[in-house]
């Protein structure tokens, strides 16, 4: 078991630029069931992916492959022809919001948007659009979602993951890799790792993902990685203390971040005295979350949390 994606999830890709093509290739190498692509001007042709280009040289399922993905003009056509339920969006920022809404309109269950740099106002519209639909959005500005050994949608390096017992949810990319790597080394592995992204307006929240992991029978604990800005971690703390039945460990980045400065991520900013790391850490500790004192201690914090429960 896992959350969001599994080995039999059929996935399409929206956006076949350099990044989209590269990561479609690494997804196929990992064993993800990529079934089609959407591109407005290349409809009717195919995109060829031949041989493992995963730079780690460690393809997920080992076999070499020779895949021709059919390209459709619209998401609706792609869904109709392939039965896909999930989409990976690599469309450039000016068009990404529209791509997400098109995917939702076509009835996809899950849309994972990797694109960084979507205007906030566009995401405000996306959020309103999705409020009336069943589609779940992950991202944007995120590494994606991976269920180790089964399905990888996004830009994360597959080989650092290992099928296991911990659900990972994070606002950061490389910090997630750090966490996943520690969980793999420590032998806990991951059920699913979800990057919810570093933007101020995004799809799935910490609370959404915590709820999914809490219901997933295979997930035994959750490691959540937050950062300064907004109140998503405080909302998570509230939810954990009310509803979470499984142990949670966490790390919050940005203890030393100065107020009023955007720390790389569009959403990582302390404004009006709100969104500090200290406030988030206090809220999470108050909810019983074991907070790692440094990012090197995320794996051991998870072990500690598991031991306490």
């Amino acid at each position: 078991m896992s959350v969001l994606i599994e080995g039999d999830t059929n996935v399409i890709v929206q956006g076949l630029g350099k990044t989209g093509s590269f990561h479609t290739d690494t997804a196929i190498a990992y064993g993800t069931r990529m079934v089609g692509a959407v591109h407005p001007t290349k409809a009717g042709t195919t995109a060829a992916f031949r041989g493992a280009t995963d730079p780690s040289g460690v393809p997920g399922r080992g076999e070499t492959y020779d895949v021709e993905l059919p390209i459709f003009g619209t998401v609706a056509e792609a869904v109709g022809a392939t039965g896909a339920t999930a989409s990976a969006v690599y469309v450039p920022p000016p068009f990404a919001a529209d791509a997400i809404m098109e995917a939702a309109d076509a009835g996809l269950e899950l849309v994972i948007c990797i694109t960084e740099g979507i205007p906030v106002a566009d995401m405000v519209i996306v959020k309103r659009f999705l409020a009336e639909r069943a589609t779940r959005l992950v991202g944007p500005n995120c590494p994606g979602v991976i269920t180790p050994g089964q399905c990888k949608i996004g830009i994360m390096p597959g080989y650092i993951h290992d099928p296991g017992r911990i659900g990972v949810v994070s606002r950061s990319g490389t910090l997630t890799y750090e966490a996943v790597f520690q969980l793999t080394k420590i032998g806990l592995g991951q059920t699913t790792a979800i990057g919810i992204g570093g933007d101020p307006v995004n799809g799935s929240s910490f609370v959404d993902c915590l709820a999914l992991f809490d219901e997933d029978p295979q997930t035994e604990g959750v490691l959540m990685i937050g950062e300064i800005g907004g109140t998503a971690e405080e909302e998570a703390a509230e939810w954990i203390s009310q509803s979470m039945t499984k142990p949670v460990a966490g790390f919050i980045a940005g203890t030393t971040a100065p107020p009023g400065k955007r720390m790389g991520h569009a959403g990582a900013i302390i404004s009006g005295g709100l969104g500090t790391a200290d406030a988030k850490i206090a809220a999470l500790e108050g909810a019983g979350v074991v907070i790692a004192p440094t990012p090197t201690d995320m794996g051991t914090a998870m072990v500690e949390a598991m031991g306490q429960s």
Partner: peptide
């Protein structure tokens, strides 16, 4: 010098730590 915004923040934090 770090790759990734979250890791870059965490690196600042660990230096302070």
């Amino acid at each position: 010098m770090v790759n990734g915004a979250g890791l870059a923040m965490a690196t600042m934090d660990i230096i302070k730590y």
